[in-house]
Amino acid sequence: MKNSIKARRRFGNGVVYVVLAALGLLWISPIVYLVISSFRAEKGSFLDGYIMPRGYTLDNYVRLFTDTDQFNYPRWFLNTFVVAVCSCIISTLFVLMVAYALSRLRFKMRRPIMNIALVLGMFPGFMSMIAIYHLLKVINLDKTLVALVLVYSAGAGLTYYITKGFFDTIPKAMDEAAILDGATRFQVFWKITIPMSKPIITYTVLTTFMAPWLDYIMASVIMKDNYQNYTIALGMYRMLERESIYEWYTAFCAGAVIVGIPIAILFIVMQRYYVEGVTGGSVKG
């Protein structure tokens, strides 16, 4: 009896291992292939009738940093990094401010603001891109990195929902005690709530930090012809135009790998916080 249960479990686990291995292979193989392509010696985006490259080289990586006349990869990387850092700082602050105000403070317009914010977040954003571009032009910021930072972080306040859920779980008694001791509400926010919100802050930082690396459309409308201020997505997409794809496809793969490494590390390290974040603190990992 006992043995049969054990056997059944062992069999079940065996099936699970097989399924996991198969799925894992499915998931990892495109990435592995991307890495392989980034070391490929043959140029072009298609291999004819075979899959594994016939030769390997490091040139694709070297060239990203040396052959910068046409595609200034290091510069774009730096641009994106700066934009990502700035916009994630501002976004995170905005989200925390809004979420705290809506979660902890009581004032007349609280409820309407929450509903409006919920609804506003649903507009297909890029429809308004052209208007945004012209507005930025009015304040003389079009085609600049500052504009990108503004655009990526301005709307951040609307995504308060998850963070608010997190704040809701922090016991109110602490705030009240602090206020009795003479602390202002700002001090409560800054000195008590924020230090307790590490998971949610990490989550917000992670998600907002990644946005500039992924966005193509918005950046293209704002940057227009200003090549020097391109972000990585914008620049790398240009490598795939019909005039340059043959020469640059493998370098494109190399560029993607370079972008991927820091994000991968960040993500694997921060995984735990990410989960806590997205579930609004209902889970304490």
Binding site: L23, I28, I31, Y33, L214, A233, M236, A264
Partner: peptide, 17 residues
């Protein structure tokens, strides 16, 4: 980790790939 690694590469790259 096997599954999570795919998050690291920007989606537009994986999609084009």
């Amino acid at each position: 980790t096997l599954f999570v690694v795919s998050i690291a590469v920007p989606a537009f790259v994986t999609l084009l790939l």
